[in-house]
């Protein structure tokens, strides 16, 4: 059975590749999008057949709620507010990765705490690879979630560009340093006993997401959204490493890579370099000055 599930993930990934390929030319774009949707259906069916899935009640409930909200939003949104919509959806994807990583952490705690060998055998191995993947998944997921919502705020004009970016650069540096220290401690001890540390790190990651995007000018938001889109793919990929699921790893890295290339292409179209966006504030401000001088 497990073999068929893996094959299904592979087939889904092929559909996604053809789908993305199709979306790069206007003629085949609609068909490409449909192919991707079929790929998603295959992946979901495969996930439902996974031997770890026992109860279907909650899943059906979640899918029904999510689908109705998604369909409602997709029908309702104005064409002019499409960038906000894409950014918000992106944030939801990142948030989902964050939550899956935390849920898996909690499950590992229960499984390993119970001492039940059969139960432990169904879970991922408790090793450094798993702990690192959990942290990366939480980091990228949280940054994507908060970053996207800051981007939405900026696009809607509710969040202006801050006058001083120094503070945010400081927050980014401090939170990165704290995260590195926290991660090293998390990985070097038994990670399952560090739930308090994990909560603190989640909060820092959320803060980091805000601080990374706030300094970037509103005009750069499309590029930022493309970049966050790439992040949300990578977050899915990291979740794949957490769960040991190849389907997630392939598709996540596919989206991550295509998103990054799209970001570079968009940067070129706007005559900006990617470093301007990646390193946010200071570079953007300098570029702004030099543009004014020109």
């Amino acid at each position: 059975m497990q073999v068929f599930i893996y094959l299904a993930y592979l087939i889904a990934a092929v559909f996604f590749i053809y789908g993305i390929k199709g979306m790069t030319t206007p003629k085949t774009a609609v068909r490409g999008n449909q192919l991707s949707a079929v790929g998603m259906l295959i992946a979901v069916v495969a996930a439902l057949l996974d031997h770890n899935v026992v109860h279907y009640y909650y899943i059906i409930m979640g899918v029904l709620i999510g689908a109705s909200i998604g369909i409602f939003l997709a029908k309702k949104v104005q064409m002019t507010s499409m960038p906000e919509m894409v950014a918000a959806l992106n944030g939801f994807g990142g948030g989902a990765s964050l939550m899956v990583a935390v849920a898996n952490y909690l499950e590992m705690q229960t499984a390993y705490g119970s001492g039940n060998a059969e139960l432990i055998a169904t879970m991922p191995a408790l090793d450094m690879k798993w702990s690192i993947a959990v942290i990366i998944s939480i980091l990228i997921g949280a940054v994507t979630l908060m970053g996207s919502f800051v981007a939405v705020g900026k696009l809607m004009g509710k969040l202006g560009d801050p006058s001083s970016i120094g503070m945010f650069k400081m927050i980014v540096k401090v939170s990165l340093a704290l995260l590195v220290a926290g991660s090293i401690y998390f990985v070097s001890t038994n990670p399952l006993e560090q739930s308090d540390l994990l909560i603190v790190m989640i909060v820092i990651c959320l803060l980091l997401g805000v601080a990374l995007v706030i300094p970037i000018g509103g005009a750069d938001m499309p590029v930022v959204i493309a970049l966050l889109n790439s992040y949300s793919g990578l977050a899915g990929s990291a979740t794949g490493f957490v769960l040991g699921n190849n389907g997630l790893i392939i598709t996540g890295s596919l989206v991550g890579a295509s998103g990054l290339i799209l970001t570079t292409i968009m940067c070129k179209a706007m005559n900006r370099s990617l470093t301007n966006v990646l390193f946010g504030g200071s570079m953007a401000a300098q570029a702004g000055i030099s543009k004014d001088e020109n």
Binding site: V53, A96, V100, G247
Partner: peptide, 9 residues
């Protein structure tokens, strides 16, 4: 696609 992970969780 992360829904796959969510379903399993």
């Amino acid at each position: 696609i992360v829904v796959v992970g969510a379903i399993i969780s």
